[in-house]
Amino acid sequence: MFSIFEILRDNWLLLLIGQYPNGPLGGIACTLILSVLGILLAFPLSVLLALARLSPWRLLNWPATALVYVARGVPLLMIILWVYFLVPLLIGRNVSGFVTMLCTLVLYEGAYLAEVVRAGIEALPKGQMEAARALGHSHLGAMRLVILPQALFNMLPSMLSQFVSTIKETTLGYVINVPELTFAANQINNQLLTKPFQVFFILAIIYFIVCWSLTRAATALERRIEARRAGPRRAGTAPQPTVVVETLAAEP
């Protein structure tokens, strides 16, 4: 088992940043950049989709709902194949695996985050919207100033949890040669050939450390938010339910 330390010692740079500067940025750096960009770009899309799903206009509601069901019902790998095929057609030139993966993640995470945002909005007491409208705000104005700020704050732990899912999803970039961490590990394995268990064990441990730390942070954040919202308990005000981090589906 000491070979694990040898492998780490010899290949840590490859695992960290891939072939850079002799190639594109890879390894953990690529994984994290892909995940962060993915979730950041998915976020505005998810808010729009959530609002569309909640809207009473069928023209908005039905396409948004359809998109969400497709994302929930079709494997991520299949969606990657679609994007890999369609994006070059749509913009007329070839794109790198990184960009393809980014577009896929934005779409996929956008749909899943939309459900998280929707749950957060629906978990707020109806009285909030009623009070805002009673004061004269328009529907969108009430959303922007009253509902979304509260819902998004409450949803922070769930969003952090989705970020962890995004990190796990970047591994599928391996299939289209995105130089992220899993790809780097496979490169190492193809060079060494005799120590596959050690290589993949290292890979699993790295992901475990990253994801587990983030999940712990999410749980701690959730507890602090709940404590904040429970606040000094006054008679007649019930604490609002948190949308539990547990309820998110497994991502590949």
Partner: peptide, 9 residues
């Protein structure tokens, strides 16, 4: 916490 693809590999 470990991605499913990595577990498969």
């Amino acid at each position: 916490n470990v991605p499913t693809l990595v577990q498969l590999m």
